[in-house]
Simulated assay, not measured.
Amino acid sequence: MTARTGTSTMHIGELAERTGLSLRTIRHYDDVGLLPATARTDGGFRVYSEDDFERLMVIKQMKPLGFSLEEMADILELFSQQDAGAAGGRQAKLAAYLEKAVAERAKMARNLAQADELIERLGGRS
């Protein structure tokens, strides 16, 4: 196995179990470049690190907020940037993504409140 040294690794099945995502979803994120496997075994099986797990959890958090694959890739890149020289542009982009996330969450909260009202109405009729 040719994984990064000093990190624990896992196969895709363990990653799927830990994240609650399907193997198909994880493979898709690999195929589109959002979550490339850290390494491959000699037999060609994907191997993931704890960093990959954390990256996938961020992807999982972005998904319900309606971010596109391109936006997800951009956000992940912004999170990984440590260059202080681009801090102004980085902060502005992160602020725009934050604004979108807050607006989407508010929309989800309104929808959830409407669902709660219906559930209450249905409960009152039985």
Rank of each mutant, 00 (worst) to 15 (best):
M10I: 04
F79L: 15
R90H: 09
G44W: 07
R121M: 08
Y97I: 03
G20M: 05
S49V: 06
L112T: 12
Q91W: 08
A37H: 04
T41A: 03
K107N: 05
G13Q: 14
E50N: 08
Q81L: 06
P36R: 07
L23Y: 05
G88K: 12
G124E: 14
V102P: 00
H11R: 10
L112C: 13
Y48A: 04
E70F: 09
I12R: 01
L122T: 07
I119S: 10
G44F: 08
E17S: 14
Q61D: 02
A86Y: 03
R40D: 08
A103R: 09
L94A: 03
E54F: 06
M1H: 13
F67W: 02
A86R: 09
Y29G: 00
G123D: 15
E99D: 15
L35G: 01
D30S: 12
L21E: 11
A37K: 03
D52M: 08
G89F: 07
R90W: 04
G20C: 06
D30W: 07
A16E: 09
L15Q: 05
A95V: 02
G89V: 05
A73N: 04
F67N: 02
L34D: 00
A86S: 13
T41M: 05
F45T: 11
K60P: 01
M72V: 06
S126H: 14
R46K: 11
L118M: 11
Q81T: 05
G123Y: 08
D30G: 12
T41I: 06
R24C: 01
V47M: 06
R121Q: 08
T19L: 14
K107Y: 02
L65V: 00
D116C: 10
R125K: 08
G13N: 15
L23S: 06
I26N: 00
N111S: 11
G66R: 10
E70K: 13
N111Y: 11
L34A: 00
T41K: 00
A115P: 06
D51Q: 11
T7K: 12
R40Y: 14
A101G: 10
G44M: 08
M10E: 06
M1V: 14
G44R: 12
M108P: 00
D83R: 07
L122V: 12
K107L: 02
Y29E: 04
S126A: 13
A109I: 15
Y29C: 03
A96T: 07
H11E: 10
G43C: 02
K100D: 00
E77T: 15
T41Q: 06
E14L: 12
N111A: 10
L21K: 09
M108A: 11
Q61N: 04
T2V: 10
V58W: 00
L98K: 15
T38L: 05
A16T: 08
